[in-house]
Computed example of a mutant assay.
Amino acid sequence: MHKKALVRDLLKEKQTELTAAERKLSAVLLDDSLLTGLQSINRLAECAEVSSPTIIRLARKLGFDGFSGMQDAIREEIGARMKQPLAKLDAVAPSDSRDHIVSRFIGAVSDNINRTLDRLDLAEFNQVAEVLSDPAHRLYLLGGRITRSNAHYFFNHLQIIRPQVTLLDSSPSVWPQSLLDMNAGAVLVIFDIRRYEKELEKLANLAVKQGASIVLFTDAWGSPIEKHARFCFRSMVEVPSSWDSTLAINFLIEALVAEVQSRSSDQSAERIAALEQMIGESRIFRSN
């Protein structure tokens, strides 16, 4: 699947070539993470308020023979996105016992990073680095069940480089207090990979309504949060494991940390020096 163009990406790439009715249908498919596309052609036409021929024309513009071909691709894409850990484990059972897991894992991770870089928009990367390095923007970070460690890692570096950085608690019950301060200058950095978490999407939606901007780190298929995000980084996550890998995501994090540090060199140098002095003078952080 990863070597095929994703239906979601095709819909976005072809927007300028679509008619008004086709764009309306495209919006319906994208807004529902393609799930609407699993219905019959008549039901989809009714939901999108377009004709059946419009659906067929859109499918052909995307490169499919017709609606059934597009629907098969949608079904495969959703299946890959929602794949359960145990199903993944069965799918990657080694065919050769001499092929060690370390070798296979290295190959998969290297491929993930290379393919993530192939998709990376350097202009967007620079824009995000500029936003994250500007102390006028208060930063908030949050990850999901698997990506919480990525958010924590990013937070640990950013809070040393610059002020006004907050790591949100994992409990949704305390998010409203932070939402109160997410104004037009705030930036919410969210990590969300399959299986996507509804609570994070709700938070992103509320943050945007408050005026905040979203920077999203997600997987190849794209979290539903993407429709709320100002910036989005898609990373490859599949490895020979029952769990997805976030090493390609961490690669982007470390590259951003280096660039933010470079853009904030004077400010961060002062903060690091002050931190070292504080640690040196504070007995509370030392063992006797």
Rank of each mutant, 00 (worst) to 15 (best):
K4E: 09
K4N: 12
K4Q: 08
A21E: 07
L25V: 03
D31G: 14
G37A: 11
Q39V: 15
N42L: 14
N42C: 13
S51Q: 12
T54Q: 14
I56Y: 15
L62K: 03
L62H: 05
D65H: 12
G66M: 03
M70L: 08
I74N: 06
E77M: 05
I78Y: 14
M82W: 08
M82R: 11
K83Q: 07
Q84E: 11
L86W: 14
L89Q: 15
A93V: 08
S95Q: 11
S95P: 07
R98P: 06
S103E: 13
G107V: 15
N114T: 11
R115N: 08
R119P: 04
F125L: 06
N126Y: 03
E130S: 12
L139E: 00
I146C: 08
T147E: 03
F155R: 01
H157V: 00
Q159W: 04
I160S: 05
Q164K: 09
D169M: 10
S171L: 12
V174W: 07
V174Q: 15
P176E: 03
L179H: 06
A184S: 14
G185S: 04
G185D: 07
V187R: 01
V187L: 00
L188P: 00
V189I: 05
D192Y: 01
D192A: 12
Y196D: 02
E199R: 14
L200K: 04
L203T: 01
A204P: 04
Q210Y: 02
Q210V: 00
S213T: 06
V215Q: 05
D219T: 07
H228G: 04
A229T: 01
A229C: 02
F231M: 01
F233V: 03
E238H: 12
E238P: 04
P240K: 04
L247R: 12
A248P: 04
I249R: 05
L252I: 06
L252P: 03
I253C: 02
L256W: 02
L256M: 11
S262D: 13
S268I: 03
E270T: 15
R271T: 07
A273Q: 11
E276V: 04
M278E: 06
R283K: 12
S287P: 05
N288L: 10
